[in-house]
Amino acid sequence: ARCQGVVCAMKEAFGFIERGDVVKEIFFHYSEFKGDLETLQPGDDVEFTIKDRNGKEVATDVRLLPQGTVI
Rank of each mutant, 00 (worst) to 15 (best):
47 E>F: 05
14 F>M: 07
44 D>T: 08
44 D>W: 04
6 V>P: 00
33 F>W: 03
41 Q>P: 01
59 A>L: 00
31 S>V: 05
52 D>Q: 11
14 F>Q: 07
3 C>N: 15
24 K>A: 09
60 T>W: 02
49 T>Y: 11
21 D>G: 13
62 V>H: 02
12 E>L: 08
2 R>C: 06
46 V>H: 02
34 K>W: 04
49 T>F: 08
57 E>G: 06
65 L>K: 08
7 V>S: 03
19 R>S: 08
55 G>H: 03
2 R>P: 01
63 R>T: 14
2 R>Q: 15
14 F>P: 01
18 E>G: 04
39 T>Q: 10
8 C>S: 15
47 E>H: 02
68 G>R: 07
15 G>V: 02
54 N>F: 11
40 L>N: 02
71 I>Q: 15
4 Q>W: 06
36 D>E: 13
37 L>G: 04
48 F>M: 06
1 A>Q: 06
1 A>R: 10
54 N>S: 15
3 C>Q: 15
49 T>W: 08
62 V>Q: 00
10 M>V: 04
40 L>R: 02
5 G>T: 03
5 G>N: 02
36 D>P: 09
59 A>T: 02
22 V>T: 11
23 V>G: 13
4 Q>G: 03
6 V>T: 15
33 F>T: 02
60 T>M: 06
33 F>I: 02
31 S>E: 08
39 T>H: 13
71 I>L: 14
54 N>D: 14
48 F>C: 00
60 T>F: 03
65 L>N: 11
29 H>V: 05
19 R>C: 11
16 F>Y: 13
40 L>V: 06
13 A>D: 08
68 G>T: 07
24 K>P: 06
10 M>F: 03
4 Q>V: 06
41 Q>N: 10
65 L>W: 04
17 I>L: 03
65 L>R: 09
22 V>D: 10
51 K>W: 05
50 I>R: 05
38 E>R: 13
6 V>Q: 14
70 V>T: 13
25 E>C: 08
22 V>Y: 07
42 P>E: 14
3 C>L: 15
44 D>M: 13
71 I>P: 14
28 F>Y: 01
22 V>S: 14
25 E>R: 09
2 R>D: 08
62 V>I: 07
51 K>E: 14
45 D>F: 07
16 F>C: 06
12 E>Q: 07
43 G>P: 00
45 D>E: 13
21 D>Q: 11
59 A>R: 00
8 C>V: 12
29 H>P: 11
58 V>I: 10
50 I>P: 05
32 E>V: 00
16 F>N: 04
71 I>G: 15
24 K>I: 04
56 K>R: 12
55 G>C: 11
19 R>T: 12
71 I>S: 14
15 G>I: 04
44 D>I: 08
45 D>Q: 12
28 F>K: 00
26 I>P: 02
19 R>A: 08
11 K>I: 02
43 G>W: 02
20 G>H: 08
54 N>M: 12
26 I>V: 07
6 V>D: 01
11 K>N: 09
63 R>D: 07
46 V>A: 01
17 I>C: 00
6 V>A: 14
46 V>L: 00
11 K>S: 06
23 V>M: 09
52 D>G: 12
62 V>Y: 01
42 P>T: 13
11 K>L: 08
42 P>N: 09
39 T>Y: 08
21 D>A: 07
24 K>C: 08
61 D>A: 04
51 K>G: 12
37 L>Q: 05
9 A>T: 05
70 V>D: 14
44 D>S: 08
45 D>S: 11
65 L>S: 06
25 E>Q: 09
65 L>H: 11
15 G>T: 00
7 V>T: 01
46 V>D: 01
26 I>S: 01
54 N>G: 15
69 T>R: 11
13 A>P: 06
71 I>N: 12
48 F>P: 00
56 K>D: 06
31 S>A: 10
13 A>S: 13
28 F>N: 02
24 K>Y: 05
19 R>N: 07
49 T>K: 08
6 V>I: 11
32 E>S: 05
2 R>N: 14
4 Q>D: 01
46 V>E: 01
62 V>A: 00
13 A>N: 13
43 G>L: 04
11 K>W: 04
9 A>L: 06
12 E>W: 03
2 R>H: 15
70 V>L: 12
7 V>A: 00
64 L>G: 09
36 D>H: 08
23 V>Q: 06
50 I>S: 04
69 T>W: 06
25 E>V: 09
20 G>C: 07
21 D>W: 03
46 V>P: 00
4 Q>A: 05
2 R>G: 09
68 G>P: 12
24 K>V: 04
27 F>W: 06
60 T>Q: 05
53 R>H: 12
8 C>W: 05
35 G>R: 01
23 V>L: 11
65 L>A: 13
42 P>W: 02
25 E>N: 10
17 I>S: 00
46 V>Y: 01
18 E>W: 15
31 S>Q: 15
70 V>N: 11
23 V>Y: 11
5 G>S: 01
20 G>P: 14
31 S>G: 10
38 E>W: 09
13 A>E: 12
57 E>A: 10
49 T>C: 11
26 I>M: 05
26 I>C: 05
63 R>C: 13
30 Y>V: 07
20 G>A: 14
15 G>M: 03
36 D>L: 05
71 I>T: 14
69 T>Q: 15
17 I>V: 04
8 C>E: 02
17 I>E: 01
63 R>H: 11
59 A>G: 04
49 T>D: 09
20 G>V: 11
69 T>F: 05
35 G>N: 05
20 G>D: 07
47 E>I: 07
4 Q>S: 04
29 H>L: 06
2 R>V: 12
37 L>F: 09
30 Y>K: 12
45 D>R: 13
70 V>E: 15
26 I>A: 04
13 A>M: 09
27 F>M: 10
65 L>Y: 04
24 K>G: 07
32 E>G: 03
14 F>D: 09
58 V>W: 09
68 G>N: 04
38 E>V: 08
7 V>Q: 01
34 K>D: 11
40 L>T: 01
71 I>R: 15
23 V>S: 14
47 E>L: 07
60 T>D: 03
19 R>M: 10
11 K>C: 03
62 V>D: 00
20 G>S: 12
27 F>C: 08
29 H>T: 10
61 D>Q: 04
58 V>C: 12
2 R>Y: 14
37 L>E: 03
39 T>I: 09
58 V>Y: 15
48 F>E: 02
57 E>L: 11
26 I>R: 01
47 E>R: 03
29 H>D: 12
50 I>H: 00
62 V>E: 02
19 R>K: 08
62 V>R: 00
37 L>C: 07
5 G>P: 00
61 D>H: 05
53 R>P: 06
42 P>G: 04
17 I>A: 02
48 F>Y: 08
1 A>E: 11
44 D>A: 10
3 C>R: 14
31 S>K: 13
10 M>I: 06
30 Y>A: 05
5 G>D: 03
53 R>M: 09
56 K>P: 04
10 M>K: 06
34 K>F: 06
63 R>L: 05
63 R>N: 11
14 F>A: 05
37 L>S: 05
64 L>T: 12
38 E>Q: 11
39 T>V: 12
26 I>N: 01
20 G>N: 11
33 F>P: 02
46 V>Q: 04
16 F>H: 09
